[in-house]
Design a binder for these strands. Structure first.
Lengths: 218, 218
DNA sequence: TAGATTGTTAATCGATTAACAATC
DNA sequence: TAGATTGTTAATCGATTAACAATC
């Protein structure tokens, strides 16, 4: 019972979410966003569970810690629940991010909605290769790495995405960190060292397949 | 204590790993593979923890359930630990996978080592677009979707990777499922429905950034 | 020897699950 | 009303953490 004591009618929000709850809420949000795109109005905890691999009871428990968001016999209203989870995660607004790497991967990312759908706006694409300078990636023109620091400071960017080959991951990450970025997402699985105040997340398809395979083979 | 009773000197392997343990072991394996690539010989639980965001004590506990793999004062021998974890996960061999989608993303995936480094061999690239047929992607030639079923049966493929736009994700997944694939990894965040015996994993960069952002902002 | 890091214990906390009354 | 699904409880299990002896 580490939740703040709530007086009648008030929200029951705890001071700070645990890592598990925050991760799961983000996961529910992703499913809700996609279900909304498909034109759905409401969704049950059971169904969110099928898409997220989270137990349906766990989902209802996670949500009921913050309020009564559902309707018995019906499920959860998608628009409403998206707003509520965004409030809980305190990430309601748009967030500018910087993309480093304008190769095939960078171009694929910039022209997709995988970030845009979730409140992240790619506000600059950077590449160390001078021959790429100025070429179009999505709706943006590729900028040289020298522009990184100014762009990150001007647009208050704290998230950087790396779409560079493994051999360039560390140097590209260094450039982002020097410019003030605090959260790095890398599509390469090369290990990246950063100061303690910077967190690195890596794309991990093979890792997910490996453990899915274990359960398939068992 | 659900571990099998082990007689002296034998491995202590439990019947079946929990989801948590299997996922973490896969994660350690990824870090070990990368550290080996960097020419490292040994690594401490502390350091694996920094790269995986898993507590160092938890890592030692996970490993010590299967044997004494480390050396006190030194750490874990990387080559040895990779072999041991592969044995535990029973995924030591090579696994053929099918890649659907030969656009920028598919090409980026096929020409990278993100799967190859972890024992997954891309043995076929497929695309519904007839104009792409035969063009080179990595070291492979793009095949039409009609070839999918035969290829998957011949090469005993149980894993399919989707690198297609959100609007094509469901139909491409259907083709994979019809051909006999049991594990699907999708780079699109569109929701995909499959029969109960097929598991779907999705790439989720925005989700990870969202919850990283929560902890940065708190 | 001195320093480092494993292997292991014990105590706590969060996740998971089944079950079911409440209610839409 | 009948069917469905939430919100919530209670019981169990796994994860997390600090601490430290063992030992390389």
């Amino acid at each position: 019972m580490s939740q703040a004591t709530a007086t009648k009618g008030e929200s029951l929000a705890p001071e700070r979410l645990t890592v598990g709850v925050a991760a799961r809420l983000s996961r529910y949000l992703q499913v809700l966003t996609q279900a909304k795109k498909q034109g759905r109005d409401s969704i049950s905890s059971q169904e969110i569970g099928e898409y997220t691999h989270v137990n349906a009871t766990q989902i209802r428990r996670d949500l009921s810690g913050f309020g009564k968001f559902g309707k018995r016999g019906v499920g959860y209203n998608i628009d409403f629940l998206i707003l509520e989870i965004r409030k809980i995660l305190r990430t309601s607004g748009q967030h500018n991010i910087a993309l480093v790497g304008a190769g095939q991967l960078g171009q694929a990312i910039a022209s997709s909605n995988i970030f845009g759908d979730h409140g992240f706006h790619i506000s600059g694409v950077f590449d160390a290769d001078p021959s790429k300078r100025g070429s179009a990636v999505g709706e943006l023109a590729v900028q040289p790495m020298d522009d990184l620091t100014d762009a990150i400071r001007e647009k208050n960017i704290i998230v950087g995405v790396l779409a560079v080959p493994p051999g360039s991951a560390q140097s590209a990450a260094n450039a982002l960190v020097d410019a003030g970025v605090k959260i790095v997402f890398s599509y390469s699985d090369a290990l990246i060292d950063t100061p303690p105040d910077v967190t690195v997340h890596r794309s991990n398809p093979a890792e997910q397949l490996l453990y899915a395979l274990y359960f398939y083979l068992s």
